[in-house]
Simulated assay, not measured.
Amino acid sequence: MTDEVPVHDTAALTHHIEARYHARHRRQLPALADLSERVETVHADDPRAPAGLAAILRRMIGEMEVHMKKEELILFPALRAGGLRGVENPIAAMRADHDHHENDLAEIRRITGGPTLPPDACGSWTRLYARLEEFIADLEAHIRLENDILFPRFEPQGAA
């Protein structure tokens, strides 16, 4: 698969988002939550440990799955059909979800200090933060594609 994003073709863009971002988030989040639980347990006495990170990631698994299913089953088919009447309502709901996801990312950054590793971090902690940085970058890129490129095509001017 190429990293070139088909920004000018709505159908191709929605398929790209599903294949590149939805599929990846479904792989990333459970693995991150498992790894975070391990790090939190092993380093429970270390005040630098990311206490509470696994709980946020576990909650995000469910919330993002619902969000992605709504896009895949309802919103994206409507956009591929040219934007059916009333499509601005599910778009507004997706934007609200995106705001919530961004708040989750801000909380993840707070808990992990960036994420910033302590100098003596173990291999699991190091892997967790590296994968977490990748997830954060992926989710931010995903949200930007939808909020800044895809959704404005189907919203009244000035609504975005």
Rank of each mutant, 00 (worst) to 15 (best):
D3R: 12
V5H: 01
P6C: 05
V7P: 00
V7R: 09
H8V: 11
H8A: 13
H16V: 09
I17M: 00
Y21W: 01
Y21G: 00
Y21F: 15
H22L: 09
A23M: 13
R24Q: 14
H25S: 09
H25K: 08
R26Y: 06
Q28F: 07
Q28T: 04
L29V: 06
L29I: 08
P30W: 13
A31W: 07
L32K: 05
A33G: 09
L35M: 14
R38L: 11
R38T: 12
E40K: 05
E40N: 06
T41L: 04
T41H: 01
T41Y: 01
V42E: 10
H43P: 00
H43A: 03
A44H: 04
A44R: 06
R48W: 02
P50W: 03
A51D: 07
A54H: 03
A55V: 10
R59N: 10
I61E: 14
M64E: 07
V66Y: 08
K70V: 03
E71C: 08
E72A: 08
F76Y: 09
P77S: 05
P77A: 03
A78S: 15
A78I: 00
L79A: 03
L79F: 03
G82F: 03
R85W: 13
G86R: 03
V87D: 11
N89W: 14
P90E: 03
P90Q: 02
I91E: 06
I91D: 09
I91M: 09
M94V: 04
R95M: 06
R95L: 13
R95T: 11
A96G: 13
E102H: 15
N103T: 14
D104L: 05
L105T: 08
L105F: 13
L105R: 08
R110G: 03
I111S: 12
T116H: 03
T116Q: 08
D120R: 01
C122R: 00
C122W: 00
L128F: 06
L128R: 05
R131W: 15
R131S: 15
I136S: 06
D138F: 08
L139D: 04
E140Y: 02
I143M: 00
I143T: 01
E146H: 11
E146I: 12
D148N: 11
D148G: 15
P152R: 07
P152F: 08
P152D: 08
P156Y: 05
G158R: 04
G158Y: 04
A159F: 11
A159Y: 08
A160K: 10
A160L: 06
